[in-house]
């Protein structure tokens, strides 16, 4: 338990990497499916909807875990501006993880499409058809999708910077496996 302050809990680390892979897949599937008329369009959009709703469930579990376990502190020598940046970008990532699936669902409801997931699971609509709501939700899903990708890239750059350049142990707090003292400070 002495590790608690140096690393995220194993379940948190597991969820982090699982969701990271799925979110990157969602972003690529999203832009890929809307730019094709090939037969793969149908399986792609089915995966997009199913995985997106699954991620919504996962992020809620993840937030609960985050509130329960907290996060290890950032290194003391990290400049305040970087700290603020880290905090804000993490907030943005959590926000997008929650908002993106809701926008996706809302956009389909507002267009009066039945939302049917893999296995025939149907999610009942909670919004009536509305051109205005559809356009608003569509635009938000579209622009925030690109913002999400940009922030994911930034997050990845920062993680690699911690791991490879600063070598301050921040990467190790979320690593799935303990890497040699390359990424975690030796104690």
């Amino acid at each position: 338990m002495s590790n608690a302050h140096h690393r995220f809990a194993p379940i948190q680390r597991f969820l982090h990497w699982l969701m990271a892979a799925c979110i990157i897949a969602m972003l690529f599937i999203g832009v890929g499916m809307v730019s094709t008329v090939a037969p793969t369009y149908l399986p792609l959009i089915l995966i997009h909807k199913t995985l997106g709703v699954t991620l919504l469930v996962l992020v809620l579990i993840r937030l609960a875990l985050r509130l329960h376990y907290g996060a290890p502190p950032l290194p003391e020598d990290l400049p305040p501006a970087i700290r603020l940046g880290a905090r804000l970008s993490h907030l943005a990532l959590y926000g997008l993880m929650i908002v993106m699936p809701l926008l996706g669902l809302g956009m389909l409801w507002a267009a009066a499409y039945p939302v049917v997931l893999y296995g025939g699971i149907e999610i009942p609509a909670v919004l009536p058809q509305s051109d205005r709501a559809h356009t608003l939700l569509w635009s938000a899903h579209f622009y925030l999708g690109f913002a999400f990708f940009a922030i994911v890239l930034l997050h990845l750059a920062a993680a690699l910077f911690h791991a490879l350049v600063r070598r301050d142990g921040v990467f190790g707090t979320m690593a799935l496996f303990t890497l040699r003292n390359r990424t975690t400070p030796s104690e």
């Binding site: 499916m33 809307v34 094709t36 008329v37 090939a38 037969p39 793969t40 369009y41 149908l42």
Partner: peptide, 9 residues
């Protein structure tokens, strides 16, 4: 291949 193409368009 048409239904998928039509759905997308």
């Amino acid at each position: 291949p048409f239904p998928a193409a039509r759905s997308s368009v």
